[in-house]
Design a protein around this nucleic acid. Structure first.
Length: 552
RNA sequence: GCCCCCGUAGCUCAGGGGAUAGAGCGCCGCCCUCCGGAGGCGGAAGCGUAGGUUCGAAUCCUACCGGGGGUACCA
């Protein structure tokens, strides 16, 4: 019995109580109730605090409500015992057969175990990374690449249709700075003060000159344009390749330039003006964001007639909405948190609902640590670290895992000495090792001709078996929560917990027959449990885009 | 100044109002007759401070202290 099934059963019992007039709830009985795995084993397999939650509304004392629930719950199929504890907790023990059935259900569901249809029909646009094509993908962007892709996988797992989108900013002044840097390097000069100092600029300039030798004969202003065009193109190719190698595939690369060329910017501005949300002042055109909760109003067309950066965002947002996305999610670094107010106000100015149609997810910064101190020098960039630097030192699996393992709200320090280790200190290794161990048993079982017959799942009564079953039963709930809160780290933590439960089970429950022992029902049931563990670890790792090795 | 994030064990971090606050590392002590010991078991050790809300607060609110980031008619 999974927590979800139990929740439904308890809700059904509540409905009955209300229908029979035993309990009066002004808002009726809920459809689901909170069911959790208690920390203390004495508190049963599962516990619920519904009685505490609803007592006040029902106008009864929590223990009395608990009594009524308990009596009826004990009659429910699969529930072995219900105890009332403390102020009104219900501690529920599930019978072994119903518990063991979870393993069979998981194996039957296979790769679809943990998925849900809660987001069905929702079209989500998830924009992340969106780094300017002025250099290699940085370490900071790497976090958004891993987190964003994982959020996308989670949304897909819960039934949403997701478009992974990269906003390619090829319109602004920083591109000029790249072009100037390339020109300088191409002509054997030092990069300007505000240029890009990395060695990649020199490489790029050489590459461009090799492919287009005629640039050498152009004057500086023509060469500037050539370097600009080819530089952006090549940089962009490199960024795409880096991300692809990192297992992040974008569906759409959107060019800011297109918005300006197509008239989309003007269209967005006109729309906002029609809605009465713009005004002119000091020769500039402003968007009235303050009335929608922003700190102050924002310029969208500068007094020199040039559109301000925000105008591109307006047009881009409108474009996404017109492409049919119900929800536009954007991942941003903490250095952009100041944009939240104006972006949300902009959304509201279009008549949309901030938080629903537009959602900004802010994450904190990343550092790399080695031997206890922060690594500052990137290989090709001089002063800033790249995704490639990270992957080179710890590999893709560890990099993806390390980048999503923590809440986005915390500054992330990645200790590359730790993540490069092949020991259990390294969380990704710990989880992958559990999967390899599982796979090994399954291989051995196949050699023994043991696969197929599930035995009797009711025999899985060992404490460690129960712990493992409950851990495995938790995946759908964790996926649901991680998706809803946009918190992929919950998947990683869950996997570590599940891997731990498996290692403990393995340590005290022999799975395969020893020596000449005849295979029995318990062997088969445990084998099913091992197989279910494989499914859960593999599905969880897949959500993180991390491989689930059968051998390591 | 104002805004955002963080402050939990010696260290790195989990803990979406619930029962005795968890994990890994490090430290101390254990467990190998066969499935991968790259594992497992036990022990010592903690919610920045002060108020408030609540039957119940690490979690919500306020103030303060400490760390990080931001605050352009730049993009």
């Amino acid at each position: 019995m999974t927590p979800e099934q139990l929740s439904t059963s308890i809700a059904a019992v509540l409905h009955d109580l209300v229908a029979d007039g035993d309990v009066h709830l002004p808002d009726g009985a809920p459809d689901t109730v909170t069911v959790e795995r208690p920390r203390q084993r004495e508190h049963g397999d599962y516990a619920t605090n519904v009685a505490l939650q609803l007592a006040k509304k029902a106008g009864v004392n929590p223990r009395a409500l608990a009594e009524m629930l308990s009596t009826r719950l004990e009659a429910v199929d699969g529930i072995a015992a219900v105890e009332i504890a403390g102020p009104g907790f219900l501690n529920i023990t599930v019978d072994a057969g119903a518990q063991g059935q979870v393993a069979a259900d998981i194996v039957a569901a296979g790769s679809s175990y943990g998925r849900a249809g809660t987001g069905a029909g929702e079209r989500v646009n998830l924009e992340f990374v969106s780094a300017n094509p002025t250099g290699p993908v940085t370490l900071a962007s790497a976090r958004w690449a891993a987190v964003g892709d994982t959020i996308a996988r989670l949304l897909e797992a819960t039934g949403s249709t997701v478009t992974r989108e990269y906003y390619f900013n090829d319109h602004g002044a920083q591109i000029d700075r790249l072009a100037n840097s390339l020109l300088a390097r191409g002509r054997g000069r030092d990069v300007p003060e505000d240029g890009y100092p990395g060695s990649y600029v020199t490489e790029l300039a050489e590459e461009i000159l090799a492919a287009h030798p005629e640039i050498a004969d152009e004057d500086d202003s023509a060469a500037f344009e050539s370097f600009r065009r080819h530089g952006v193109d090549l940089m962009f190719v490199e960024i795409k390749q880096t991300l692809k190698d990192f297992r992040v595939d974008f569906d759409v690369y959107f060019h800011e330039d297109d918005l300006h060329r197509s008239g989309a910017v003007q269209k967005a501005i006109d729309r906002l003006s029609e809605l009465g949300n713009t005004f002119e002042q000091d020769g500039a055109l402003w968007l009235a964001t303050e009335k929608f909760g922003d700190d102050k109003d924002r310029v969208i067309v500068r007094s020199n007639g040039q559109p301000a950066y925000l105008s591109g965002d307006l047009a881009y947002y409108l474009d996404k909405r017109e492409r049919g996305f119900d929800r536009c999610l954007i991942l941003l670094g903490a250095d952009h948190h100041g944009y939240v107010g104006r972006m949300m106000a902009m959304c509201a100015a279009f008549g949309d609902t901030p938080g629903t149609n537009l959602e900004l997810i802010i994450g904190q910064m990343v550092n790399l640590l080695s031997h206890g101190s922060v690594v500052r020098m990137g290989k090709r960039t001089g002063n800033i670290l790249t995704l490639d630097d990270l992957v080179e030192s710890i590999g893709i699996d560890a990099a993806r895992y390390a980048l999503v393992r923590n809440s986005m709200d915390v500054n992330l320090d990645i200790d590359i000495d730790l993540w490069a280790k092949a020991t259990s200190d390294n969380p990704v290794f710990y989880v992958q090792y559990a999967h390899a161990r599982v796979s090994s048993i399954l291989r051995n079982a196949a050699d023994l001709g043991l696969a197929g017959d599930p035995g009797d799942v009711g025999l899985l009564t060992h404490e460690r078996e129960g712990d493992l079953l409950r851990a495995l039963a938790g995946l759908p709930g964790v996926v649901a929560t991680a998706t809803e809160l946009r918190e992929p780290h919950r998947i990683a933590r869950y996997l570590e917990e599940t891997a731990g439960a498996y290692h403990r089970f393995y340590d005290s429950c022999r799975v395969l027959p020893m020596g000449d022992e005849e295979p029995g029902d318990l062997h088969r049931a445990r084998l099913l449990l091992v197989d279910a563990t494989r499914v859960v670890l593999a599905n969880g790792l897949a959500l993180l885009g991390v491989s689930a090795p059968e051998r390591m």
